[in-house]
Amino acid sequence: MDRVVKNRTSSFIDLLKNYSKDSSFPAFIVLVLLVAINASLQPTFFSYDSIKSNFMTFTPLILISMAQGIIILSGNLDLSVGAGMSLLTCVMASLLTDSITSVILVVLLGIAVSVALGAFNGVFAGHVGLPPLISTFATNAIFFGLAMTIMPLPGGYVPKFFYRWYRGDILKVIPVPIFILLIGIGVWVIIKRTAVYRYIYAVGGNAEGAYSSGIKVSNVKLMAYVLAGIFAALAGICLLLSTAIGDPRAGLSYTLNSVAAVVIGGISLKGGKGSIGGAIVGAIILGLLINIIFFAQVSSLYQGFARGLIIVISLSLAAIPKLREESRKI
């Protein structure tokens, strides 16, 4: 797999050489460039406050891209993540009250709902065997409709202490958004140590081969959607806290952005190739790009255009190593 093999004698340069073969390497280069551009546009870019406010907006995208990454690695796709996030914000904002117990219960309920939505998608993609591109488009409509039923207009209630907590720090050092992101990464590290992790790669890379070696392919696909549900829940909670309102349309843009982030991060849409680290890098890239468009004061009329163009450019950059490979083959 893509893991860099560490040798005790290998120096830093060898490590870099190994990493240059990694699927997320082009994305990493783009990331370094973007950080440089951002830093030159915004002198305070590396200050604590700026990092914190950046991560406040990046964290939902990073987490939902991790969710999308797991699903795409397993050879599937989820076009319902955005509507799922919106539904989550509506469910939670309609139930939250001022007490701490309610916050804890509602957050747990939110995670359960998100996992259930993932399982719903997973059954159709895994056990029923529908093409996920269309089946998750159908569930997207269902989730969006449910969110609209709960909350036709943005509203609900989020306790002040709860959304202020999101803007604060843990132990006065780690901003809460980064803390939640670290929880997500921690969950991924745990998943990495289980067999499910290898099964996901096996099924995404070669489902027939995986089936022949005794892996229950449909269950693994279901598992991928369920695990992604956990990350989607964290993303939904962060979205709710950053906007402090339940909104049936809040998550809509996250669907395509998450797919774009995953692809920019070097994960193959065919499944089985790439790493979740790549998805994280891809999401940060997309976030920084949106930042640049904002700081360059592009009028809102042209932001879509600029974003599309930038995605095309970064994808063309990501295509270069593939072309190099192909020319070597011939």
């Binding site: 050879g75 599937n76 796709l77 993609a125 895994g126 065997g129 093409p131 996920p132 591109l133 995404g204 489902a207 027939e208 089936y211 022949s212 229950k216 392919v217 449909s218 696909k221 065919k270 499944g271």
Partner: peptide
Amino acid sequence: RDTKQINYF
């Protein structure tokens, strides 16, 4: 069988 489910396309 499961073998028929290859990828999302």
